[in-house]
């Protein structure tokens, strides 16, 4: 994008970080809020130029065609509103369908704003950290039965197990997850689990990891315990489950 573009755009004082917008509705709300405008058809016409300027600043990224398309749809709706505001009204254009059409964008924005407010309230609750806990189901016991012949496994095999688990999970979300779990905390948990059950499977430890980051930290924790000779790694068969066992219990 040519840098001079921004010069003639009278954007609100608060500089807009263009790629920061999740979508066109958010961008539109931002423009209205910055101009202290209510959500009405008139206000929408007023911010049309700003929105189009914004659109022209969006990166032309072919990987984000959906994203661009959403902006274009909204831009088209704004232009329609604006053209209707500028042109004298034709007499026959008073039927219900057209009126509804004019309100659609404003209605969508109102609805969207409500959910944004709801999301903000949810965030407050979440950040207060006042969550409830249900009774803990006892940790599923490692399968018993005829003692499997376990071969000792290497950290390299564990790494392969991690890769498999990562691959089987949903792709990482676009925004990097903020790791709240520290290695030290995870170490404590893996240690406690091994102490309580003598032997736990890596898959079982992984089930307790809501995010990919958690999973990787768990992997690091197991490696650390292995390095410190607190645990041994065992495997039943090639590509089989990897067990983390307390040293001396094997």
């Amino acid at each position: 994008m040519p840098g001079g573009r921004t010069a003639y755009v009278t954007l609100p004082a608060d500089p807009i970080h263009i790629p920061g917008f999740e979508g066109p509705l958010e961008a539109l709300l931002h423009l209205l809020d910055a101009g202290e405008l209510e959500i009405t058809a008139v206000s929408l016409v007023a911010v049309t130029d700003q929105f189009l300027a914004l659109l022209s600043l969006l990166p032309r990224d072919t990987a984000k065609l959906d994203f661009l398309a959403e902006f274009l749809v909204v831009a088209a709706q704004l232009l329609l509103l604006k053209s209707r505001a500028l042109l004298p009204r034709e007499a026959e254009r008073t039927d219900k369908a057209d009126e509804l059409d004019e309100e659609t964008l404003a209605r969508r924005l109102l609805e969207y704003r409500q959910f944004r407010e709801a999301a903000a309230k949810l965030r407050e609750r979440h950040e207060r950290g006042e969550r409830a806990f249900a009774r803990q189901a006892p940790a599923p016991l490692p399968p018993t039965g005829p003692a499997p012949r376990l071969e000792s496994a290497s950290p390299a095999l564990l790494a392969r197990a991690l890769q498999r688990l990562l691959a089987s999970r949903a792709p990482a979300s676009e925004q990097p997850e903020v790791p709240r779990v520290t290695l030290a905390q995870r170490l404590g948990r893996v240690r406690a689990a091994v102490r309580a059950h003598c032997r736990v499977s890596f898959t079982w430890l992984a089930e307790d990891c809501p995010t990919r980051t958690d999973l990787i930290i768990t992997f690091l924790a197991v490696l650390e315990l292995f390095r410190a000779h607190e645990v041994v790694l065992e495997q039943e068969e090639l590509f089989g489950e990897i067990w983390v066992a307390a040293l001396g219990e094997a």
């Binding site: 944004r116 999301a119 949810l122 965030r123 979300s173 709240r180 809501p210």
Partner: peptide, 20 residues
């Protein structure tokens, strides 16, 4: 007691979706 850490923050997109 549980030795649990707080769950990580939810992104604005996730929170909006969750609210809906």
């Amino acid at each position: 007691f549980l030795g649990r850490e707080l769950s990580s923050r939810l992104s604005p997109a996730a929170l909006e979706t969750l609210a809906i």
